[in-house]
Design a protein around this nucleic acid. Structure first.
Lengths: 195, 195
DNA sequence: GCTCCAGTCGAACAATCGTTCAGATAGACT
DNA sequence: AGTCTATCTGAACGATTGTTCGACTGGAGC
């Protein structure tokens, strides 16, 4: 062929564009962006990407990304620094971050973690906890519980006296609810961002 | 005025459309959708919504939703005091977890963490590291480096002898690269899922 | 060497784009 | 009542859209 397959690189630029503007550009602008001089080249590219399932046409013939457009490759080993094509081969799995973390959006809440009472479980101050709202939990689950009208993230435990909320930090004492234990939700994921 | 203000209703339909197609339609289709017979009415509406900050124009004059476009009435859920604010400010101005963690999709890779050499930094075996591919890093950054052809996640440090890769686990020894240090990428985020 | 052929170029095309403007409509105000 | 004023209509406009087609390019593979 005239060129090695650069569609992956092209797709990447489109993903960057969409993540910035939440909209896909026109063929002319795509061409400019990708260094193509003719719209017919873009047209062919769009056809290829559509076939591959990354983009689609709305009923009124506008470009729109599909779900696959947002998939990321999850590599067990990072790939040798080299061609983007190589990165494809080593892709062990593809997933969208949102779907991975939040399978049930309507009952899921994000809560910013405060304090270091859970630091030995690798949950730091400022992290974001992905919490699924429900009232039932298993022992060992990290739960958001309501104690004296306050919300607190602890590990659910139990001893001969009953349920208790266990911090993951030796400097903190377990909390034993005076009355029934009210659980707001169960922590199902963690998000952290380094700046 | 000729009509009560129906912009809210119009906005709602645009939101529905976007959530279905991930793209905003042309003026003609908007008019059809909203029951407007003339594109100039749509043009005026777009001007109003732009002014109100719900939509904007990309550099190539395409309609694109803004963050405010995705705001929802929060009247429905009187969430117990303390939490709702946390959920909202947790991701500040990002619409999705994906967007929050991955501003530049094409240079970002997800890598599954193996081993517990970084456990004191709250990075556990099985966690997913969000890695931005680049060769430059700052001291203190957690980097994926290439040492003897192997990829390893460590904290970048430096002493009088030069750069070294510092594990975050007292039981591991620092790695001092024999030759130049090659950096594959910088860890910018962390994702963990509890099952 | 030679042929393939996916990818790109360049130009021409009708269709659709969003803008503009003058005029009609109808609720809100005095 | 009459006047305002924001909204919508309808038509005309040049600009831009995406499609199409024939020709060119340069690795891959015989």
């Amino acid at each position: 062929m005239g060129n090695p397959n650069r569609d992956n690189e092209y797709l990447g630029k489109l993903q960057d564009y969409f993540s910035q503007y939440r909209s896909l550009p026109s063929y002319a602008v795509i061409g400019e962006m990708l260094g193509m001089a003719s719209k017919s080249a873009v047209s062919a590219l769009v056809k290829r990407l559509t076939l591959a399932g990354y983009i689609e046409m709305t009923p009124d013939r506008r470009l729109a990304p599909t779900k696959r457009f947002f998939e990321r490759e999850l590599a067990d080993f990072p790939v040798p620094a080299g061609l983007p094509a190589a990165a494809n081969d080593a892709m062990s799995d593809a997933l969208t971050v949102d779907e991975y973390l939040i399978p049930r959006p309507s009952t899921t809440v994000l809560v910013r973690v405060k304090g270091d009472s859970m630091i030995e479980a690798g949950i730091h101050d400022g992290d974001i906890a992905v919490v699924e709202k429900r009232h039932a939990a298993n022992l060992g689950d990290k739960v958001i519980a309501i104690v004296d009208g306050e919300y607190t993230l602890k590990t659910l435990a139990k001893d001969k006296l009953g349920f208790l909320l266990q911090p993951e930090n030796a400097e903190y004492a377990p909390i034993r609810p005076r009355e029934g234990l009210e659980i707001y939700g169960v922590m199902v994921g963690l998000i952290r961002k380094y700046r």
